[in-house]
């Protein structure tokens, strides 16, 4: 069934978009990532203009992460206090990111910078997560050392401004989570994504939060970041396509619920190794696009773009 999108000005298959939204939604509910790093390339692949893909992707991710965050909140796996501190840092970081983005725009080569940032961060985060979760999986398989409940004392325990996070069972300084939030906000403004794929491992490995709480808390923060992004795009670039967003989010919210259910059945190590593989795959794809000669060297854009 073909549907004409009023802002993108193209006609697309509604079922394809619904399926795409559903797929991203499942990932979102399962891993606590917004899915922006998958959504934007996939939308462009089916012929949506890049600007519309980025802006509308943000709108859709906002919906699916809200749906996912609600599910986690009801199950008590959302650390609101931690989420708010991440968010405070995130807002500061995204303002800085927008400023840097404009600077890069004036220098040209934004597209290249975005691709390189993607490759760098997806590669590093994916590889770290893969190695760690593989090790954990092998440990669990051999049964040699059952997980030691005692947590490592990280930097977060030493810094001042300590605060109690009952949901995460943590008593740590607020400086590291705020810094992580700021980094994620900064990157999401530059890369046009929610930043879940950076935040989730950061919360697990740097803050020592339990994986079960991490997902809901990440979704909580992403929901706000993408909400602000949607508003910014709607008022400044006019590239939010509500029709496209509606199709994506109908698939997405359903997918997020399925993902949240699936997440309860899978083990934490398996979840992390799956996410690591997906992140690495996307990283490889972007790296290959940069390295291999494209079949069409030319591309068209509206004349107003720099």
């Amino acid at each position: 069934m073909l549907i004409y999108l009023p802002i993108a000005e193209v006609s697309v298959d509604a079922l394809l978009i619904l399926g795409l939204g559903g797929l991203i939604g499942v990932l979102s509910g399962l891993f606590g990532v917004g899915g922006g790093f998958l959504m934007t390339p996939l939308l462009m692949l089916i012929g949506i203009p890049p600007a519309v893909a980025v802006a509308t992707g943000a709108n859709q991710i906002c919906a699916s992460s809200f749906s996912g965050a609600l599910a986690h909140w009801r199950r008590g796996t959302l650390d609101t206090r931690m989420g708010l501190i991440l968010l405070a840092g995130g807002i500061a970081g995204s303002f800085l990111g927008v400023w840097v983005f404009e600077l890069l725009g004036r220098l040209g080569q934004v597209e290249l910078m975005v691709s390189l940032t993607y490759v760098l961060f997806l590669g590093v985060v994916g590889a770290l997560m893969f190695v760690e979760s593989l090790r954990a999986l092998i440990r669990a398989r051999t049964g040699a050392a059952p997980r030691i409940p005692k947590r490592k004392r990280t930097l977060a325990h030493k810094l001042p401004l300590k605060m109690r996070f009952p949901v995460s069972h943590l008593y740590i300084s607020v400086i590291p989570p705020a810094a992580i939030g700021a980094l994620v906000g900064f990157l999401s403004a530059i890369m046009g994504v929610g930043g879940g794929f950076i935040m989730v491992p950061a919360m697990i490995y740097l803050l020592g939060m339990p994986t079960s709480v991490v997902v809901g808390t990440s979704l909580f923060q992403i929901m706000f970041v993408t909400g602000v992004t949607t508003l910014l795009h709607a008022t400044q670039t006019f590239t939010v396509d509500m029709m496209l967003a509606l199709l994506l989010l109908v698939g997405g919210v359903v997918g997020a619920q399925i993902g949240a259910q699936l997440g309860m059945k899978l083990r934490a190590e398996q979840l992390r190794i799956l996410l690591a593989l997906i992140v690495l795959a996307v990283c490889l794809k972007i790296a290959l696009d940069l390295a291999i000669e494209p079949s069409e060297l030319y591309s068209l854009a509206p004349a107003s773009a720099p």
Binding site: S64, L231, A234, M242, L246, V250, V253
Partner: peptide, 24 residues
């Protein structure tokens, strides 16, 4: 989207949140 972009953006957000809540 062209004449009242803020209203359009807020509407897009409202639709998104409503859909998220509805599915939940």
């Amino acid at each position: 989207s062209r004449e009242a972009p803020l209203a359009y953006g807020l509407l897009a957000l409202a639709v998104a949140l409503a859909a998220g809540w509805g599915a939940s």
